[in-house]
Write a protein that binds this DNA or RNA. Sequence first.
DNA 1: GATCTCATATTGTGATCAATAAATGATCTT
DNA 2: AAGATCATTTATTGATCACAATATGAGATC
Lengths: 247, 247
Amino acid sequence: MRIDKSEDAGNGGGEAPKKERGHVHGHVLRYMRRGLMVGAFLPGQVMSLRKLAAGFGTSPMPVREVLSRLVAANALEETKGGSVRVPRLSPEKLSDLFAVREMLEGMATELAAKKATPALISELAAINKQLLVAIEKRDILNCLSSNQKFHFTLYEAAASDVLMPLIESLWLQFGPTMYMSLLIPSMPWNASDHEDILAALNEGNASAAKKGIVHDIRTTCKALLSVAGSQGIELPFAQGADLQFDY
Amino acid sequence: MRIDKSEDAGNGGGEAPKKERGHVHGHVLRYMRRGLMVGAFLPGQVMSLRKLAAGFGTSPMPVREVLSRLVAANALEETKGGSVRVPRLSPEKLSDLFAVREMLEGMATELAAKKATPALISELAAINKQLLVAIEKRDILNCLSSNQKFHFTLYEAAASDVLMPLIESLWLQFGPTMYMSLLIPSMPWNASDHEDILAALNEGNASAAKKGIVHDIRTTCKALLSVAGSQGIELPFAQGADLQFDY
DNA sequence: GATCTCATATTGTGATCAATAAATGATCTT
DNA sequence: AAGATCATTTATTGATCACAATATGAGATC
């Protein structure tokens, strides 16, 4: 069969729009997921199929599928009109979210600690060093990124393909709010719990590692709630409708 | 087979293609979710967009979106070719699944117990009565259905819109396997833990209620694993490719 | 000046189409 | 006769089209 795909190369004045089939939505999904965790999208922002498709250089169809999946993962919510937007979290929901995080990520940490290898620990230490640098420079993007990397490489070591998707769903949910909060000057940035966790992993003390993660999560939650209480979660943000694809 | 979502009847000799816009996929999604929990789909079964669309009397498009969401919720998995199928659970994954169930549903039960009203308790008691009847009659369908109803009305009382979706995701995952296992004669059917939970709720004893749920889940897990061990999870089933929409 | 109404534009939804890729079956060769 | 190759069929995927509902804005009315 194989009908000679041909005319991309030799075609001099190629008018062909270069069809390029094959699984675009995987790309888009990864991009959006990362974007949600790292602050490319803001709470309350509505996602437009056509705008996003234009941004990704594709048709609305793959984007529709991706948004659909993110809605299913509770990372996005749909309005009565069928549009999807980034949810705006109430302090209560944020609190619930972090309570569940403590359980799930605590469990993952415990499992991971029991399987921890020296290679894993040194990898985590390296990531934490990057995090410290990002904190030093007040670099929100790299701070979120390396913090996420630290947690997820740790949980990945638990090798539980049932815990992992649940944890990811939670991170997708609080991601945008987390980014918003880091914009506030009074928000404390620290990674002291990570040091404790590394120490616990070195000692092979699983329950101490778990305690460390739980403390880390609880501290973050308190910080988030305090800035939410002082300034209100709903900050006025100007860039509302526009996207930032350059990260 | 024809699902007949609404006014097919009134249309006399309707030649009109019956455009019927407006959110078909909600129907399909609810139907599929229930179907997964109640045994309409079997582990290993591959879902055909066209077949399903024909069954629902719609085009492949809304079905595609629904399947996409179910994949995102880990209720279905996609093959390398892009098809989606009902996952076949390994004993290890089943065990992991139920370990997480214990945590999440235990937490939900504890919260629910603290908010339990007499109305809720009597509702749960009524549902449990239906369950007992179903067990008596060895009616798999109503057994699964009322068991699911018992658990979910209990968890619903926790009023946590972060726990609920996670729990639903878990149920969607083990649903098909659960149905398979109930087909095995040696599988024990009982609802004794539910009685204990009702008693705990009546006493306002939250931790006892939690213990009851955890015990219920653990018992179910052991039963599932034992039949998996004796007969293997992968039973040969004939109806593989066909669907049963009539439940 | 505020509110209600209507027209416009933008959005999502569902259907159809073209094209790729996988699965299936048949034919040919060894 | 058994295995491999190739063609046919069927599957999903991405693009485009038509329609409906919603949101937005301007204009008129009270």
